[in-house]
Amino acid sequence: MAEIYFTKDHEWIKVEDNIGVVGITAYASEQLGDIVFVELPEEGITAEIGKDIAVVESVKAASEVYSPVSGTIIKSNEDLNSTPEIVNEDPVGKGWFYEIKISNNDELLGLMSEEEYQKHIGD
């Protein structure tokens, strides 16, 4: 069963064993509005916790996506190249950004649970 964690910068990561799937939250995608473009990381590169790894653009805004954990990018969601709108339609499902091989599972301890995140955006 996959565990889901959140960051204060509105990324989510679903983790199974030491593989994580990363995307942005429904709240973030609503704030951005109609998403028109996602710049995804190349497969094989190394991501560092808290460092920008992708960019998401709407008509009037653009925002960095920061990797929730360190690791190696295994796969990017190429569907986002032709249909970025799925980030709006299904942010925590089909609208995922990339798959990452987590190098240090301890980093997950610093992330928020779903409940904590809901509280965070409620503030």
Partner: peptide, 12 residues
């Protein structure tokens, strides 16, 4: 494509 531009992205 104005999200590339300074009035939106500012220092980025």
């Amino acid at each position: 494509l104005s999200a590339r531009e300074q009035h939106i992205r500012r220092e980025k």
